[in-house]
Simulated scan of single mutants.
Amino acid sequence: MSAITLSSAQAHLDAWLAASIAVAAAQSYEISTPTGTRKLTSADAAEIRNMIVFWETRVNRLSGVGRKRLRYFVPSSD
């Protein structure tokens, strides 16, 4: 079982989305991390995008989104 809960993953995703919006508007943003506070600037845009994708994937996985797959087969002519 994963140590990261859905609510924790959602909180991380929300924080990175807020960072993205703030950096786009003000060109810098401070985010709290487990090891302290970190200042992000527009130069960190690629990392912000990567973290959004990471946490969005984690949220989707924990909430079961994307697990339904369409499977089909072609009957053989044997």
Rank of each mutant, 00 (worst) to 15 (best):
1 M>P: 05
1 M>Q: 06
2 S>G: 08
3 A>H: 07
3 A>D: 15
3 A>I: 15
4 I>Q: 05
4 I>G: 00
4 I>W: 07
5 T>I: 11
6 L>D: 07
6 L>M: 00
8 S>V: 15
8 S>I: 12
9 A>N: 09
9 A>I: 07
9 A>L: 13
9 A>S: 03
10 Q>N: 15
11 A>G: 04
12 H>E: 11
12 H>K: 08
13 L>R: 03
13 L>A: 03
14 D>V: 09
14 D>E: 11
14 D>I: 03
15 A>W: 06
15 A>I: 04
15 A>G: 01
16 W>N: 11
18 A>I: 10
18 A>C: 02
19 A>S: 01
19 A>Q: 12
20 S>P: 14
20 S>L: 15
21 I>A: 00
21 I>V: 15
22 A>Y: 06
23 V>F: 02
23 V>T: 00
23 V>K: 05
23 V>S: 06
24 A>F: 03
24 A>I: 04
25 A>E: 15
26 A>T: 13
26 A>L: 13
28 S>P: 04
29 Y>I: 00
29 Y>F: 07
29 Y>N: 03
30 E>F: 03
30 E>V: 02
30 E>P: 10
30 E>C: 00
31 I>Q: 00
31 I>L: 03
31 I>P: 11
31 I>K: 03
31 I>T: 02
32 S>M: 02
32 S>E: 10
33 T>G: 08
33 T>R: 05
33 T>P: 09
33 T>W: 10
33 T>C: 07
34 P>T: 13
34 P>W: 08
35 T>R: 02
35 T>G: 09
35 T>Y: 09
36 G>H: 06
37 T>A: 08
38 R>H: 12
38 R>S: 00
38 R>G: 02
39 K>H: 09
40 L>E: 02
40 L>N: 09
41 T>E: 09
42 S>Y: 12
42 S>K: 05
42 S>A: 06
43 A>Y: 04
43 A>E: 12
43 A>S: 09
45 A>N: 10
47 E>T: 06
48 I>Q: 07
51 M>P: 04
52 I>E: 01
52 I>K: 12
52 I>M: 01
53 V>T: 11
53 V>E: 03
53 V>W: 10
54 F>D: 14
55 W>N: 11
55 W>L: 14
57 T>S: 14
57 T>V: 13
58 R>N: 15
59 V>N: 06
59 V>T: 14
59 V>H: 02
59 V>C: 13
60 N>V: 09
60 N>P: 14
60 N>G: 09
61 R>Q: 09
62 L>C: 08
63 S>Y: 13
63 S>V: 10
64 G>A: 07
65 V>M: 14
65 V>N: 12
66 G>I: 09
66 G>N: 04
69 R>G: 07
69 R>A: 04
70 L>N: 08
70 L>D: 10
71 R>S: 05
71 R>T: 12
71 R>P: 12
72 Y>F: 11
72 Y>V: 07
72 Y>Q: 06
72 Y>T: 07
72 Y>A: 00
73 F>S: 09
73 F>H: 05
74 V>N: 04
75 P>C: 03
75 P>Q: 01
77 S>Q: 14
77 S>K: 08
78 D>F: 01
78 D>W: 00
